[in-house]
């Protein structure tokens, strides 16, 4: 199934976007009276403009581009956090637009792991409780939750920090907790927005190694403008003004 940009939504694709557009309106549309009085519609901004891509399992796709190019918006659309104004997003054969609000929330819980630039951990909970939180929503028993969260924290090298609250952890440690939280439901797709944006170089490298491990049996999409981060990607899409300006494969990235 080919689209207008020649991207193929193959059955093996974990997530695919087809001719996706996202337009934001600045302000509200005028009512009937306001229109009659000559008030013009509010200006719009096109954050993502007719973008298509497909991400397969065990693939890391990077989204690059300057600030305001639409990286984060495209990431949010792929994660089901935002609705595209036009186009479709399909996740393992299911069109996200067909899901209700509750359905999309459930979809994110079961299939998507999100790593935010600012970590967004709950400060009042320990590292382990933060990681285990999605499992609470899934109705997993306490013992299993604790075990799974502990295993993941040990895997990211935080076995001795499980009872620490985020305020007691360094930036790198918090990001690793966020990664563990994103992985705890064993999602098919992990999206990360500027995952090393707030970290020093050494810590950033450790985090990137973690992402490479994460991608062993799932799809990963990273949005970043950090060269070192983008170096770990199998494919790189450069966005400019909401459109894909350039596509680069792994050989071309490292070359």
């Amino acid at each position: 199934m080919a689209n207008s940009h020649g991207q193929t939504s193959t059955p093996s694709a974990v997530v695919s976007a087809s001719d996706v557009r996202k337009v934001y309106t600045q302000g509200s549309n005028p009512g009937r009276i306001a229109r009659a009085l000559g008030r013009s519609p509010p200006p719009t901004i096109s954050a993502v403009d007719t973008v298509s891509l497909a991400v397969s399992q065990e693939e890391i796709v990077g989204l690059a581009g300057p600030s305001g190019s639409g990286k984060s918006t495209l990431l949010h659309i792929l994660a089901g956090l935002e609705h595209p104004t036009e186009g479709t997003v399909t996740f393992q054969g299911t069109e996200l637009a067909a899901l209700s609000r509750r359905g999309r929330t459930r979809h994110r819980l079961e299939h998507i792991g999100i790593v935010f630039q600012h970590f967004h951990l709950l400060n009042s909970l320990s590292a382990r409780a933060n990681v285990a939180l999605p499992l609470v929503e899934l109705g997993v028993g306490k013992r299993q939750r604790r075990q799974r969260a502990t295993d993941l924290l040990e895997r990211v090298g935080l076995g001795d920090r499980i009872t620490h609250r985020p305020g007691e952890l360094s930036g790198g440690e918090r990001q690793r907790v966020a990664i563990a939280r994103a992985l705890v439901t064993d999602p098919a797709l992990v999206v990360a927005d500027e995952p090393t944006g707030e970290l020093d170089t050494d810590t950033g490298r450790t985090i990137l190694q973690e992402f490479q491990r994460v991608a062993e049996n799932r799809a990963v999409v990273l949005a970043s403008h950090d060269r070192e981060t983008l170096d770990i990607c199998d494919r790189l899409l450069r966005l400019r003004d909401g459109s894909i300006a350039d596509r680069t494969s792994r050989g071309e990235i490292t070359g």
Partner: peptide
């Protein structure tokens, strides 16, 4: 953040 993680409004 809870909503983004998939925690329902009810929860």
């Amino acid at each position: 953040v809870l909503s983004a993680m998939g925690v329902s409004v009810r929860s």
